[in-house]
C-alpha cells in the first residue's frame, strides 16, 4: 500500500479563531487575544529574533499573481523597501490596533478572526534576525 500525501491546508490554521499560540515566555494565548506587548515581549526573550516596525507604503493588486495583493513596506530603522504578495485575507498585526487585513470580510469568513482594514500608513509587526554585536 502507498501512503497518500497529507492534504495541504487551504489556509494557515494558526490564524483560525481559537488557535492556541505559544509565546516565547511559554504562555499560551488564543490568536484573537494577542496584543502588541505579547509580540514585543516574546521577541525580547526569544534571543535571535527582533521585532521590526514595517510601515505599509502601498497596497495594490499583484501583477505577477492575480488574486493576491502586493504590500509594499518600509522595514525597520533602515527603512528598507520590501514587497510581499499575500492573499487579501492574510492578517497582519498592526501596532496598537491588532489584527488587520486587506479584506476583513474574507478573513472573517475563512478564519473567523475579527480584523480591521489594513491601510497605507499602518505600522505592522514583523520579525527579523537580531544582529549579533
Amino acid at each position: 500500500s502507498s501512503l497518500a500525501p497529507a492534504p495541504a491546508p487551504c489556509n494557515p490554521s494558526h490564524f483560525m479563531k481559537g488557535a492556541i499560540i505559544q509565546l516565547a515566555t511559554g504562555e499560551l494565548k488564543r490568536v484573537e487575544d494577542l496584543q502588541t506587548q505579547d509580540f514585543v515581549r516574546s521577541a525580547e526573550v526569544s534571543g535571535g529574533l527582533k521585532i521590526d516596525s514595517s510601515l505599509v507604503m502601498d497596497i495594490r493588486g499583484s501583477q505577477q499573481r492575480p488574486g493576491l495583493v502586493s504590500l509594499h513596506f518600509t522595514v525597520g530603522e533602515q527603512q528598507s523597501k520590501v514587497t510581499i504578495d499575500v492573499p487579501p485575507e492574510h492578517p497582519f498585526f498592526v501596532f496598537g490596533q491588532g489584527w488587520s487585513s486587506c479584506s476583513p470580510e474574507r478573513t472573517a469568513q475563512l478564519y473567523g478572526l475579527a480584523c480591521h482594514h489594513l491601510q497605507v500608513g499602518d505600522m505592522c509587526v514583523s520579525i527579523t534576525l537580531q544582529q549579533q554585536p
Partner: peptide
C-alpha cells in the same frame, strides 16, 4: 467517552511576517 484530541500549538513567530531588510545601500 470521547478521548481528548491533542490541540495544536503554534509558535508566536509563525503569525508575523519575516521581513529581512535588504543589505544593499
Amino acid at each position: 467517552n470521547v478521548e481528548p484530541r491533542s490541540v495544536p500549538v503554534f509558535p508566536w513567530h509563525s503569525l508575523v511576517p519575516f521581513l529581512e531588510p535588504s543589505q544593499s545601500g
